[in-house]
Design a protein around this nucleic acid. Structure first.
Lengths: 146, 146
DNA sequence: CCTTGACCTTCCCATGATGGGAAGCCCCAT
DNA sequence: ATGGGGCTTCCCATCATGGGAAGGTCAAGG
C-alpha cells in the first residue's frame, strides 16, 4: 500500500512517516519502480507501535529503544519495564512541576478582585521581589512563602 | 549596567535577553557609544517579571499581554485574572493528559514480570490493536478498556 | 488515447524557547 | 600596550510537527 493509506491505517501522518524513515527510527520502506514508497501490514503495525508509544509521551529516541526490544525475541522484559518506569518517572516530574505552577497561580488568582480596578496581586508578585512560590507537600496541602 | 550583569541580576540569560529584544517582547535596550547594550534597574525589573512569568509556564506571547497590562495603569484586574485563569486551565489540561499516560503505563508495568523472559504486556499493548488506555475518573479511580 | 484530479516525490521553511560557537570589536587592569 | 574577559552579530542545532512549492505518477472517465 502507498504512504497515504499507511498513514490512515496507522494514525501517523505521511509527513511523519517520511521523517521517521529519514532519521532512522524505522527502516527504509520499499519502493515501486516509479519511486513510490510501499508498506506492508507489518510496516503498518510498526507504525502503529510508534504512534502508541508517542501517545504515551515517549520521545522518538526512547521509541527507538522500544522498537529494538520489540524486535529482539531474546529481550528481557526487565528492560522493557525499566523504560516504562523511567517514562513514568519523567512524566511524574513534569506533572509535579506543573502542579506547583497551578498552585502558585491559584494562590495569586484568589487574591485578585477581578474587577475594573487596576490593583492586582498577580502583577504585584511578578513584578516584586517578594514572589510567592507555592510548594506542594506530599499530602497535597500548600505552604511556603519565598 | 551591561547585559551580563543584567542577566545575572534578572535570572534571564544574555542570549535570551537579546532574543526577547529581537522578537519585540521587551523594548530595545539603550546602547553605549560602542554598541554595548545598557540596562537600568527598571529594565532588570522587567526582565525579572518575564522570568517569573516563564517560571509559571506562560508562553512568551502571553507574557507580552501580561507586560502590556503591567504597564497599563488603567488596566482592569479582571483582565489579569483572566490570563491567570486561562493559564491554570491550560496547565490542568496538560496535567490531565500526562496523568492518563502515567495511569496507562502503570497499568501495563504492573503486568510486566520484569525478569529475563521476553514476554511483556507493555510491548504487546504497543504492538496489538487491543491497546489499553486508562482513563481517569474524577475520583481518581481507573477504569476503561479501549 | 488523453485529460484531469488525486496522489506521490524531494526540498525548503517555520514553529518556540533555548543553547553553542565563531569572528571580530571593546574595556579595564596590570 | 597587552591580555583576558565581555560584548557584538550571525549562523546552526534542538524536537516533533506541519505547510507549501515544483514536478512526476497513477487511475478513471470522456
Amino acid at each position: 500500500m502507498n504512504i497515504g493509506e499507511a498513514a490512515k491505517a496507522s494514525g501517523v501522518s505521511a509527513k511523519m512517516i517520511r521523517y521517521y524513515e529519514e532519521t532512522g527510527l524505522i527502516p527504509q520502506a520499499g519502493r515501486t519502480a516509479s519511486g513510490y514508497r510501499t508498506y506492508t501490514t507489518t510496516d503498518v503495525q510498526m507504525l502503529r507501535f510508534v504512534r502508541r508509544a508517542r501517545d504515551l509521551g515517549f520521545t522518538v529516541e526512547r521509541i527507538a529503544e522500544l522498537l529494538a526490544l520489540w524486535r529482539d525475541r531474546a529481550r528481557h522484559s526487565a528492560d522493557v519495564k525499566q523504560l516504562a518506569l523511567e517514562q513514568i518517572e519523567g512524566l511524574r516530574r513534569k506533572i509535579r512541576e506543573m502542579e506547583e505552577m497551578v498552585a502558585t497561580l491559584e494562590h495569586l488568582a484568589v487574591g485578585c478582585n477581578g474587577d475594573h480596578r487596576p490593583d492586582c496581586p498577580i502583577l504585584a508578585d511578578l513584578e516584586g521581589d517578594t514572589s510567592v512560590v507555592v510548594k506542594l507537600s506530599p499530602t497535597g496541602q500548600t505552604f511556603g512563602r519565598h
